[in-house]
Amino acid sequence: MKVLKRFPFSLKVEKAFDDNGNLKQPKELSINKVGHALHEIDPVFKEFSCSEKVSSLLFSLGYKKPVIIQSMYIFKQPGIGGEVTPHQDNSFLYTEPKTCTGLWLALEDATVVNGCLWAIPESQKNGLVRRFIRGDDGVYFDRPSPSYDQKDFVPIEVKAGSLVVIHGDLIHQSFENQSSNSRHAYSLHAVDTDGCKWAEDNWIRRKVEPKPLYASGQT
């Protein structure tokens, strides 16, 4: 599977500045997200992301040759941790056939007040709605977002240390952090490289082949 690397590391600061360009709060509370290849460039994140526990989980889900294609540390800071609109992970990390699975590790308690995940139960059964692609003029969605009824979403409140496994077609979102507490999480996305084709117009592109994970006993 040919995958091109363009952005091994990026830093996102969201809603952190006032009208005069000054930080609203200390720097350590102003970072919203760090990604998208922490598992490749930092040994601590690599150790967890490529661990036997993670690989065993993916093999138990039917993966034949899984790779971690993306990783992000999400801070969801008090006051500036913003909304993430309804989306499907397969929109961003598309393979044929579709194989993306999200692994969302809560590093702090995630509640309705501080911006936990919300999802539409069984929405993955309805297939992929749209794709986010990279063209000659930049990145864009190939079609408008459908309208969603917020009554269809249910909150996924979890304790620190909980791992949420997200089907690539599951419609999910999160709201702004309205509390005085952060909601740190580490998010991984895996795809299968066995008999699956990575879409050349995916927004994320890599210069080197990602290394596959191995089942226990494999080398």
Rank of each mutant, 00 (worst) to 15 (best):
K12I: 13
N32L: 05
L29T: 02
L38P: 02
K15L: 06
A16M: 07
V13A: 07
P43R: 02
L23M: 04
K27A: 15
E28S: 12
N22C: 07
A37N: 12
D19K: 15
K27H: 13
P8Y: 12
D19H: 14
E28K: 02
G21C: 03
V34N: 07
F17I: 03
K27W: 15
S10V: 13
R6D: 11
P8S: 14
K5G: 05
E40Q: 04
P26I: 07
N22P: 03
V13I: 15
G35V: 05
F9A: 04
A37W: 10
N32W: 11
F17Q: 10
V44H: 05
K2H: 10
E40Y: 06
I31D: 01
G21Q: 06
I31C: 02
K12F: 14
F7A: 09
I31L: 07
S10W: 15
G21A: 02
I31M: 05
G21I: 08
I31A: 00
K33M: 07
K33V: 02
N20E: 12
N20L: 12
K5T: 09
S30V: 11
V13R: 08
N20I: 08
D19S: 13
L11R: 09
R6E: 15
P43V: 03
P8N: 14
V34F: 12
E40P: 02
P8W: 13
R6C: 00
D19I: 09
P43K: 00
L38R: 00
G35H: 08
E40T: 00
N32K: 10
K15E: 04
K12G: 09
G35W: 12
K5H: 13
L11E: 11
L11W: 06
V34G: 03
E14T: 13
L29E: 15
A16V: 08
D42W: 13
D19P: 04
L29P: 00
K12A: 13
N22W: 10
D42Y: 12
L4Q: 12
V44G: 02
D19L: 13
K27Q: 14
P26K: 06
G21S: 03
K5I: 09
V13Q: 11
V44W: 05
L29Q: 13
F9T: 05
D18A: 07
V13N: 08
V3S: 00
K15D: 10
E28R: 00
K24L: 14
L29C: 08
L4T: 00
Q25N: 10
V3L: 03
V13W: 06
L29S: 07
S10I: 12
H39F: 06
K24C: 09
L23E: 03
D42P: 06
D42I: 07
E28H: 11
K12M: 14
K15V: 00
H39C: 09
G35A: 08
L29G: 02
R6S: 07
E14Y: 06
L29D: 10
R6N: 04
K33W: 03
S10E: 15
D42G: 06
V34Q: 11
S10T: 14
K5A: 11
K15R: 07
F17P: 04
I31G: 01
L38T: 05
S30F: 11
L4F: 09
H36G: 07
E28Q: 10
L38M: 04
D42E: 11
V13T: 10
K5C: 07
S30L: 10
H39S: 03
